[in-house]
Design a protein around this nucleic acid. Structure first.
Length: 575
DNA sequence: TCTGATCGCGCG
DNA sequence: AAAGCGCGCGATCAGA
């Protein structure tokens, strides 16, 4: 392991220096500190990487890795102290440790600016240094505390895996932000002008949107209506005799009135214009790539969040703009029905595992317990995972429980724990937040009215913890999948580059740059942008990685986690 | 006039 | 189709 400490400013020269401190496996400094000047850092890191392939230990990957990537240097492994701290201080598996008792979680900082093109890529620390960077001594102490907490925990292996996967995720996130998702600006423009008309100047509505607004005003006899205002819209609808409780599309869809069609069309187009229109394109797409910021550790369940550009919600209607470059393909893979399969594995429900042998889990369940009605089976199972109480899903729960008592009991137990105020954890040991002080206070009430509210809040927390164990364990699986795939792709990339370097000709595109790149990750889906010649290999690596993730989480288990893979030019054609 | 909450809708 | 979970974001709205 190698610790990279905060940069320090030398009084005399004003130059900034970084300490790289070799550590042994227990986190103890193994040799005298090496001090390196700033301009050499990327080169020094590259050298270590080549010779020793250490696990880099640093406070936040975000503080180091983007600049290294900009300098053309990537690393194999790291230990992100901040992300790991947040897991360990709240994990039930380490709750008795000195580390957990002596530290608080630190919310991942989102203040970091998403990088525009860095003007000066040569030097590392041109930006003003962030304050309150820990010293090398503090970092070493932190690391040692973390390692002790893991080794003394109930499940050292699982936790160590979780920390490794989380840290690898941080590397992946920085790399994907650096690489970007291939995005054809011209195709996006075409989608916009097809749907909205030519780009308007200033803050005007696009032609087609304005035309729909005019028709709507006409139909509702409301000449000054602003359809963007829910209140105005509601009043206008009521005046026109359309009784509606909200202005949501799905509720409007039920109605028969000449105003409804233009209103729904307006809402749809308005969404495209405001969320993913020309402004979005100007702001987020540069040089043929969409570069969103991923926030690892941004969701308590372990899923990633994102900031800027709505990276985790690229709507279907603009996916056509995500497009492979010439001679390349997009390999889009998603883990089919990941959450229900994770539930099967967690609960060790053998009956449901038999159904999960089917590529289509819902069809398997439908055959066993729902008279072949796939839709019913799906609604029932998702309802169990989300905690549905009403509607069709709620009504199907008893039937599901009869067929799969273990799976249902598993989520029910998680729900009961949450209602009691207890903590629940994922497969690899990430735990949910404790109830808030306000929640706890609310549970100790006397009056009937307060009690009703407290019960509702308890049930709400129960739905959260019920879902947490499944969503979070699915995130564990996906993190391992991504990390395994990243490792294999690095290996492949190194092999291709070595081949190119030693004079072997693997084809005209083997110019050292033509290696598959991970470009997108979304909960249970990964995308690799690859030269066509490597497509078959990439497919294989994705499948291997999924099997590896399953084995890492669950060992030998008779549950399949199939991935469905499509190879496309356009993201719109995936699935 | 600024700020935080709410609505509505996109994704898994 | 939502419903039941987890998010981000833009426009509007309510309150200082």
């Amino acid at each position: 392991m190698l610790l990279a400490s905060a940069p320090e400013q030398r009084q005399a020269s004003g130059e900034q220096f970084v300490q790289l401190l070799p550590l042994d496996a227990s986190g103890a400094p193994a040799a005298p500190a090496r001090i390196e000047a700033k301009l050499e850092l990327a080169a020094v890191v590259a050298q270590w990487e080549k010779e020793a392939s250490p696990r880099w230990v640093w406070h936040r990957t975000q503080d180091w890795y983007p600049q290294l990537l900009a300098a053309g240097v990537s690393v194999d492994r790291c230990h992100d102290l901040l992300l790991c701290r947040n897991i360990l201080v709240s994990s039930q598996a380490t709750s008795a440790s000195a580390y957990a008792r002596g530290n608080e979680p630190i919310p991942v900082e989102t203040a970091e600016a998403s990088l525009p093109e860095r003007a000066d890529q040569g030097s590392l620390f041109d930006q003003p240094l962030r304050q309150s960077q820990p010293t090398a001594e503090e970092l070493v102490a932190d690391l040692q505390g973390q390692l002790e907490a893991v080794s003394g925990s109930l499940h050292p292996g699982r936790l160590a895996l979780l920390l490794a996967a989380e840290s690898a995720g941080a590397l992946s996130a920085a790399e994907m932000q650096h690489t970007g998702l291939p995005w054809r600006e011209d195709l996006h423009q075409a989608i916009l002008s097809d749907a909205l008309g030519p780009r308007p100047s200033g803050f005007q509505r696009p032609d087609k949107l304005e035309a729909l607004a005019a028709e709507l005003r006409n139909q509702l006899n409301a000449p000054s209506l602003n359809p963007d205002s829910p209140q105005e819209l509601m009043r206008a609808l009521h005046r026109a005799g359309i009784e509606v409780r909200t202005t949501r599309s799905w509720e409007l869809q039920q109605l028969q009135h000449p105003a409804i069609a233009p209103l729904l069309a307006y809402k749809k187009l308005s969404r495209l214009h405001t969320a993913n229109g020309w402004t979005w394109l100007d702001q987020w797409v540069h040089g043929g790539r969409f570069r969103p910021e991923y926030v690892v550790g941004g969701v308590v369940s372990g899923r990633w969040a994102s900031r800027g550009g709505g990276a985790l919600q690229i709507p279907k209607n603009i996916r056509g703009a995500a497009h492979a470059e010439k001679g390349w393909k997009l390999v889009v893979a998603d883990a089919s029905q990941l959450e229900p399969r994770v539930l099967v594995a967690l609960a060790r429900d053998t009956g449901m595992a038999a159904a999960a042998r089917d590529k289509d889990l819902y069809a398997g369940i439908a055959a066993q317990g729902f008279g072949g009605d796939r839709a019913k089976a799906k609604v029932a199972l998702l309802g169990a995972i989300y905690g549905a109480t009403t509607g069709e899903s709620g009504r199907l729960m008893p039937q599901l429980a009869k067929t799969y008592p273990r799976a249902v009991a598993f989520v029910e137990e998680a729900a009961r724990a949450g209602e009691r105020g207890d903590i629940v954890s994922t497969r690899l040991g990430r735990s949910c937040p404790p109830p808030s002080r306000r929640w706890l206070a609310g549970q100790r009430t006397t009056t009937a009215e307060e009690q009703r509210r407290a019960d509702a809040e308890a049930r709400s927390r129960g739905r959260f913890t019920r879902n947490f164990v499944v969503q979070g364990s699915a995130a564990d699986w996906a993190a391992c999948w991504l990390a395994e795939l990243r490792r294999r792709l690095r290996f492949l990339g190194a092999a291709v580059e070595a081949g190119a370097g030693s004079g072997e000709r693997g084809g005209p595109e083997t110019d050292g740059k033509s290696v598959p790149e991970l470009v997108f990750f979304l909960h249970d889906e990964v995308m690799v942008h690859t030269p066509e010649s490597q497509v078959a290999l990439v497919r294989q690596l994705i499948e291997e990685s999924a099997r590896a993730a399953t084995a890492l989480l669950f060992g030998e288990i008779p549950v399949e986690f199939p991935v469905s893979i499509t190879v496309v030019d356009s993201y719109a054609d995936a699935k």
